[in-house]
């Protein structure tokens, strides 16, 4: 049984806007799933429907086998939510607001646990500070502390590093990795594809209210990943020699660089043959470099293709 099961979830808002159009997704226990999608794709609506902030118009969602509507208490007990916006009561103290969150979930006070959480998030020294006196990054960590206060098994992080500086982003990634080691299932929405690349076990792409793809991150990158070979020439050439016309080469930098795209998953990459052909043409190579397409390119390609299919590109 998957930790989170989403079956044909639809959400139509009052104005008639369909934010979810039959989304289905299984999230396995203990994994980190990155949910990618452009603005307005339905990421936040999907998370809100799982967490109880909005109710799906139709379809079913279950957490730990508990339906989020019919059996909402059991389902929500398992879930912690870190919202996208920094929503905190400015005049409250860190310690009090975290304790409040635990109480809200019906748990008995456990100051030792809360101390561990605050220490892990480097907030322990700030426990007596009011929220408004904290920096933006600390406020985000308070949100995480609140979400963890009731010891959830599933944690939703809705764009946790939006507007956060590089150093803090790394810290946040370490925190997420540690939570995963403790067995927490993590669903992460993000605009930063590098974040998904760095953290996720699997990647789901959502666009226009539908899940377009769910796949193991490494497999996805291997399957769809294309590599580029840049060959720097000793002497510039005016045009691609006829003997190299089969390779689909491009000329760049005024004829100083030949660019060759190849598929890493293909049986033969064609690199060795290309090198031989270059030598046969008498072209002297000064340097070569390869680069791999990022998840970002894959993502943009997927979303773009999806829109073209629907004729809205």
């Amino acid at each position: 049984m998957a930790m989170v099961e989403i079956r044909d979830a639809r959400k139509v808002f009052d104005g008639g806007f369909e934010a979810l159009r039959g989304a289905s997704l299984d999230i396995e226990e203990g994994e980190i799933l990155a949910l990618l999608g452009p603005n307005g794709a339905g990421k936040t609506t999907l998370i809100s429907a799982i967490c109880g902030i909005t109710q799906p118009t139709s379809g079913t969602i279950a957490v730990g086998g508990h339906d989020v509507v019919k059996d909402y208490r059991a389902a929500r007990n398992l879930v912690g939510l870190v919202p996208q916006e920094v929503n905190l009561e400015p005049f409250e103290k860190v310690w009090k607001t975290v304790r409040f969150s635990r109480g809200l979930f019906g748990r008995k006070p456990d100051d030792a646990l809360l101390e561990r959480i605050l220490r892990k998030l480097s907030l322990w020294e700030k426990r007596g500070a009011t929220i408004k006196s904290l920096s933006g990054g600390m406020k985000r960590r308070v949100l995480i502390a609140k979400a963890l206060a009731h010891d959830p098994r599933v944690l939703f992080l809705d764009e946790p590093t939006a507007g956060v500086d590089v150093e803090l982003r790394r810290d946040m990634w370490d925190t997420v990795a540690e939570l995963k080691r403790e067995g927490v299932t993590i669903i992460l929405t993000t605009h930063y594809i590098e974040e998904a690349e760095a953290l996720a076990d699997r990647v789901a792409v959502i666009n226009r209210g539908q899940i377009l793809l769910v796949e193991d991150k490494d497999a996805l990158m291997a399957r769809m990943g294309r590599k580029t070979l840049r060959i720097e020439l000793d002497e510039p050439v005016a045009e691609i020699p006829a003997g190299l016309s089969d390779y689909g080469l491009r000329l760049e930098d005024d004829g100083r660089v030949l660019v060759y795209d190849y598929d890493t998953s293909a049986e033969r990459t064609g690199i060795a043959r290309l090198m031989g052909a270059l030598a046969a043409e008498g072209i002297v190579v000064r340097d070569v470099a390869t680069s791999q397409n990022s998840l970002e390119d894959i993502f943009v390609g997927l979303v773009h293709d999806g829109q073209e299919e629907e004729g809205v590109a």
Binding site: C51, A75, V79, L81, P83, E89
Partner: peptide, 17 residues
């Protein structure tokens, strides 16, 4: 109204209450 205004109402809505 205040939790609605500052957005902390998300916590009430996502709690098992």
């Amino acid at each position: 109204y205040f939790p609605k205004f500052i957005g902390t109402i998300y916590e009430l809505l996502s709690a098992p209450i």
